[in-house]
Every structure is written in C-alpha cells, then in structure tokens.
Amino acid sequence: MMEDERKNHTEDAPHYGDDEHPSFIGHDLDSKRNEEYAQEFTADDLRDSEVPEEDANPGTFYGWAGIALALISFFVWPIILGSASIIFGFVARSRDIDVLGNIAIGLGVISMVMSLFVIPFLF
C-alpha cells in the first residue's frame, strides 16, 4: 500500500522541463548535486570546540584573569587590582588550576609589596 501512495504522489506532482521551472532557470534539474542535507548535519556536527567538555575547566579563566589583573596592577591601582588578582588566583587554585593560580597570587603580592614598601622610598 505504501508503494501505491508513493506512485500517486509522484504522478500528481507537476513536471517541468529545464526551461519551464520558475525557480531553476538556467540550472540542470537532473544534477546529482541536488540533494537534501537536513539529516546529514546535526547539532553535534556544528561544535567548534576541539576540547571535549569534560576536559574544559572554567578555572583557567580565573587564572588568566588573575594574571592580567596582576600585570595591570603594576601600573594602575596596585592595592585594588593586586588584591583582586590574589582572589582570582585562589579561585583558580580551588578549581585545580594550580600553576595559573600561583602565578596570579605571586604577581599580585609582588605588586602590593612594591607599592607599599619600595615605591614610596624611590621618590
């Protein structure tokens, strides 16, 4: 019964020649490239990330942000940005990103020590 239904649908469909079809003017309708791709592309195919989600750790953001704040703190607001980099470093360490967290903490401490004890005696 399914084959009979398919025959009826194909027999009832309008058939156009190459020059008659309104949306394919100048195109070859018998081309092998006219395919439907809807079932071939899925949401899983569109993932841009090469790192699996299990390996991605959000603590890396806090580590890099802490390092960036520490480097900026050498030039502007050393107490505020230095303490923020220390806090970000501890958050990164709590999320198992020890190296970035330790660097952020160390640079933040150095920036704060320099601003409190070294820089006032230089000028």
Rank of each mutant, 00 (worst) to 15 (best):
D44R: 10
D48L: 15
A43N: 13
L69P: 00
A104I: 04
L122V: 12
V76K: 13
S85A: 15
I80S: 08
A92R: 07
D30I: 00
D19S: 13
F24Y: 13
M112P: 01
I67D: 04
S111M: 02
H9I: 11
I105A: 09
N8P: 00
A104H: 06
M1Y: 10
G89K: 08
S31W: 02
Y37H: 11
A56C: 05
F90M: 14
T10P: 00
R93C: 15
A65D: 02
L107K: 06
L69Q: 07
S31M: 03
L100I: 01
H9V: 05
G17A: 11
S83A: 15
S111K: 06
D96W: 00
I25M: 06
I119R: 14
Y16Q: 01
D45H: 15
F121S: 04
H15A: 07
E20N: 11
M114Q: 09
E54G: 01
K7P: 00
N34A: 07
L69N: 04
D19Y: 09
H27Y: 14
L71K: 10
A13W: 11
L69E: 06
S83L: 15
L116S: 12
L107N: 05
M114P: 00
N8H: 08
S115E: 10
I97C: 07
P58Q: 08
I72N: 02
G63A: 15
D48N: 12
